[in-house]
Design a protein around this nucleic acid. Structure first.
Lengths: 132, 132, 132, 132
DNA sequence: GTGGTCTAGACCACC
DNA sequence: GTGGTCTAGACCACG
C-alpha cells in the first residue's frame, strides 16, 4: 500500500518566514530599496489576510536582521546596507540550493548529471531572458 | 512604499499537482513500486483533508501518465514501467532545476558562483546522508 | 463563434419509446419469452422512477403491437408469436441502421468506406464474442 | 417475470462525452472550423443547463485532444489541424459502427442481411438528402 | 470578463 | 466497499 503520511500539502514553511523571504528577495534583487516605506502592520495584516501577530513576528525578525528600521512611532523603513545585502544574498542562495539539492538527490540522479542539467537550464533561462 | 501585491502565501501550485509530484517522487526514488496498492479516493481525501474531487483529479492525471491503473469498482494500483520512470525522473529534475535557476538568477548571482555553490551544497548533503 | 444550439443532451427519445425498445430488443434477442409475466404498472413506475402515465403509455403501445396481453385484471403477459417477432426484428434493425447511417453521413465519409468499416467491425465483434 | 434491471433510461453516456462528440462531429463535418471562437464556460453552462465543472471537463479533454486551445484569462478557440481531423473522423466512424454492430448482432440477424440493410438505408438517406 | 482550481456533497455502476 | 460522474457555488490569476 502506498503511504501518503509524508505528504504535507502547501508546505512552504511558516508564513512569517515566507514574508521575510519575500522582503529579502526584493531587497537582493533591487526591487525594494533602502528608504522605502513599509506598509503599516495592520495594513499588511489586512492585505495578506494574516494574523497581526504573524506580521509582527516577521517585522521583528527583519528588524533584528537589520533589513528594516522602525522610526517615528509606527512607520518602518527599509534599511539595507550593501554588505548586509550581500550577506542576505548568499544566505538566500544557499537556502534555495539546499532545497533543490535535496529534491534532486531524492530522485536518485548523480551529481554530474545534475550539474550538467543545472548548467543547461541556466543557459536556457539566460537565452529566454534575452529574448524578452 | 514596499508593495506586497506579488507575495502569494503558501504557493506550491495546485494541490492536485502537489499530490502528483509526491507520487512521482516516490516512484522515481523507489519508495513507491509497481504493483503497490493505492489508498482509495475516499481514504486519501480523509487522510490529506482534501476534497475527493481534487484527489480524483490527481489520480486521473496520474493514470493518464501511466503511473497508476484504475478500474471502476476495483482498487487502484501503481503501474510504473522502467522507461516511464526514467522519463518522469528527468522531467522532475528539469522542473526542480528550472525553479532553482530562476530563484538564483533573480538574486543577481553569476552562473559560476551558483555552480560552485551548488557543488558545495551537494557535497554537504552527501556527507550529511552518510552520517545518518 | 461555435454554435451549440443544435446540441440536445441526453436525447434518446421519449421515455416510453425507450421502454418499448427495451422490451422489443429483449423479445427479439430471446431474453424475454412468450408467457413471461410483466411487472405491475405501479412496480415498473417505482422501479424506473417514471411517471405511471408514461408506463401506461408504453404498455398500451406494446399491447397494440401485440407483444403483451393483459389478462385476468391487472397482470400482463408477454405474447410474442414468431411472425410478429420477425417483423419487430426487422423494424429494430432498420431503426438502428437509420440512426447510424445518419451519424456516419454527417462525418462526410463515403458509402464504400463506411461499408468496409462496418464489415471490419462486424468481424471484430464476431471474433470478440467467440473468445468470451 | 420480465426483468427491467438492465434498462437504463436516457443513456447516451456522460454529458461531457456528449459535448465532446458534438464538437468532434461539428469539426469533422466542417460546421466548426479552426479559428472559430468557443463560447465561454459560463455561457455554455447556462446555454446547456449543465454545471460549469462538467463543461470545463469537456473543454479540458477537447484541449488535450488538440481540438481547441485555451489560455487562462483569454477566450478559447477551435484549433483543428487537417491530420487531426482525419484521425477524429475515423475514430467517430469506428465508434458509431461498433455501437450499431452490437445492436444488430443482439437481434440475431446475419451479417449479410445487415450489410444489405445498411446499404439500402444509406441509399434511402442519400436520396432523402438530395430531395431537400 | 476569461479560464482554472477547489470544496461540499450527491448519485451511479461495478466488484 | 471501489472508481466515476455530476451539481452548486466559491475563489483565484490573468487580460
Amino acid at each position: 500500500m502506498v503511504s501518503f503520511e509524508h505528504l504535507t500539502l502547501g508546505d512552504d514553511g511558516p508564513i512569517y518566514r515566507q514574508i521575510i523571504r519575500f522582503v529579502q528577495r526584493g531587497i537582493v534583487a533591487g526591487a525594494i530599496r533602502a528608504g522605502d516605506e513599509m506598509p503599516s502592520r495592520r495594513a499588511l495584516s489586512a492585505l495578506l489576510g494574516v494574523n497581526p501577530n504573524t506580521i509582527q513576528k516577521a517585522c521583528r525578525l527583519l528588524e533584528e536582521e537589520g533589513l528594516i528600521q522602525s522610526r517615528s512611532g509606527a512607520k518602518s523603513y527599509v534599511s539595507a546596507e550593501p554588505e548586509l545585502v550581500e550577506r542576505v544574498r548568499s544566505q538566500l542562495l544557499a537556502e534555495d540550493a539546499r532545497r533543490l539539492v535535496e529534491a534532486l538527490r531524492q530522485t536518485g540522479a548523480s551529481k554530474e548529471d545534475c550539474m550538467a542539467l543545472f548548467q543547461r537550464i541556466w543557459d536556457e533561462s539566460e537565452r529566454g531572458a534575452e529574448n524578452e
